[in-house]
């Protein structure tokens, strides 16, 4: 496998799967609810026909997306997500079907934040958002201890700034 880019070592834990599943299940249910509500209004007030059609198609799309992001994505994400931190770089690797490697110099990281929504709280997990000058990166679900550790590590190393900045 000499043609493969060396992926970093650290992985997400298995417990992240149900957390991610619940998260997207709930967000999909909410958007489906909104569409259903609109559909109800459209039928009740007999809006134009195409409105119902658009809503119908929208509902189908949400269901399709639910199959992917509730059923499959959490498993794939946790299986293929890798991250690594050393003194100079944050390295991220995601995906297998659409593989992505990212290399971010520590000195270019502007901010790190730990976030916890209600679902993640239930599972005792945190997500880590890493902001750079040009983009944002996310480590989706880490146990509290790891999250704090990783955050502090990044924060410590990101403190060093290059002359240019």
């Amino acid at each position: 496998m000499e043609n493969e880019i060396k992926a970093p070592e650290m992985r997400l834990i298995k417990e992240a799967v149900p957390a991610l599943r619940w998260g997207s299940a709930i967000s999909h249910t909410i958007s489906l609810g909104v569409v259903a509500f609109l559909y109800g209004i459209a039928t009740y007030f007999s809006w134009w026909n195409w409105v119902s059609w658009v809503l119908f198609v929208l509902a189908e799309l949400i269901l399709l997306s639910a199959i992917w992001s509730v059923g499959l994505r959490p498993v794939f994400l946790v299986r293929h997500f890798r991250y690594g931190i050393d003194e100079d770089f944050l390295q991220l690797k995601t995906g297998a079907f659409y593989e992505s490697h990212e290399l971010v110099p520590m000195a270019k990281i502007q901010a790190v934040s730990m976030n916890q929504g209600p679902i993640l709280r239930k599972f005792g997990l945190y997500s880590l958002a890493i902001e750079t000058m040009g983009s944002g990166h996310e480590i989706p679900a880490l146990p509290k201890d790891t999250a704090v550790e990783v955050r502090n590590q990044i924060a410590r190393m990101a403190k060093i700034k290059e002359v240019d900045d």
């Binding site: 043609n3 079907f97 659409y98 992505s100 750079t132 000058m133 290059e162």
Partner: peptide, 28 residues
């Protein structure tokens, strides 16, 4: 190199089969 703020290498399934990749980088 010292002016590049971060880099990425991405590969779709098709690119993986063909032994190809997409490179990307960000400049301030």
């Amino acid at each position: 190199r010292d002016k590049i703020a971060e880099v990425s290498v991405k590969r779709s399934k098709l690119q993986q089969w063909m032994g190809l990749a997409t490179i990307g980088f960000i400049n301030r």
